[in-house]
Amino acid sequence: MKILWTLLWKDLLTEWRSRDRLVAMLVFALLVVVVLYFAAPPGQGDTAREHIPGLLWVAYVFTIVLGLSRSFGMELENEALSGLALAPVDRGWIFLGKAGANLALVLIMQAVTAFAFALAFDLNLWPIALPLAAVAFLGAVGLCSLGTLFSAMAVRTTNREMILPLLMLPLMVPVVLGAVQATRGLIAEGTVPFSALQLLLVTDGVFLIVSFLGFEYVLDE
């Protein structure tokens, strides 16, 4: 289990020193917010505002796909990826270390993007800030676990930037739908529908188990 904390610390320290991935994710997310504002301007009616949670999660998903594509890219330098594969530890812990570091970056991005969304779309998110953060966290856990697994595969392919979204998007649907439903419930009524919460929890559990077990087969020398 020590490998988990070592990897987590290593990834976060590297990111703190370079800040390249986080800055790129934040700039991209803000650009998506601007594009979405002009593509789907918020109307005054309830129907027009119904789409806002979906747009927020579209921004999250695009940014997560972009950010995770670099997750294992840095491990290619100096054959660090081979070193990881040869480490005499359970590869599931390596997965959790990498996924944990990705999750930390994604949570920062989600907070900044939600703030930008609130300003752009004239939303008052303060009264629901805590439950919204919990929903964002649950969504991020699912997306980061599956994304980390696929990122480890994509880095070993010839078209890594192209294949990662193709692998991730069709399988991300349950998390995104659960998260959008939960966010919609929060913005409209201040409560999270139980079915959405149930879906998020079950999906997170399944994604974590599949990724933890599958990682054994995707890391190679």
Binding site: V173, P174, L177, G178, V180, Q181, L199, V202, T203, V206
Partner: peptide, 13 residues
């Protein structure tokens, strides 16, 4: 493995 989850997700959506 995700077929049942997709069913459930799209059902509520």
């Amino acid at each position: 493995a995700l077929i049942p989850l997709n069913y459930f997700a799209i059902k509520i959506a």
